[in-house]
């Protein structure tokens, strides 16, 4: 029971922290923020790995947890990479003037 209270406590604090962190984000960054937090929600990979590695649940459980590991890995790796790719495009104007010759690339 004490354990549960502790977990609930963490949950509530994290909720407030999350609201505080996100409220000030400018709308320009909403998409990267969403895909970045989406990658964080891939933290389920930790759960999936724990369940898959312990292997306490027979063949069916093994198959399900193996699937879970694959899906979570897609979510984590894909999520972080796509966020990074997107953020690479958000550059300031002075950076852009430096490599102006590059700007023609995208227009093909």
């Amino acid at each position: 029971m004490e354990n549960l209270i502790f977990l609930v406590f963490i949950f509530v604090i994290a909720a407030f922290l999350g609201v505080e962190l996100i409220s000030k984000v400018p709308s320009q960054l909403h998409t990267p923020l969403m895909s970045g937090t989406n990658a964080i929600s891939g933290i389920t990979i930790v759960g999936a790995l724990a369940v898959c590695a312990i292997q306490a649940t027979g063949t069916l459980g093994m198959i399900l947890s193996f699937l879970a590991v694959i899906l979570a890995s897609v979510n984590v790796v894909g999520g972080y990479l796509i966020t990074d790719r997107m953020l690479g495009m958000f550059r300031q104007k002075n950076d852009k003037d430096k490599n102006k010759n590059k700007s023609g690339e995208g227009q093909k």
Partner: peptide, 19 residues
């Protein structure tokens, strides 16, 4: 009973609600 799942999941949950 994994705290990192709770914290990370909850952060995402809260940010999604704010958005």
């Amino acid at each position: 009973y994994n705290t990192v799942l709770i914290v990370a999941g909850c952060l995402v949950g809260a940010s999604g609600i704010v958005l």
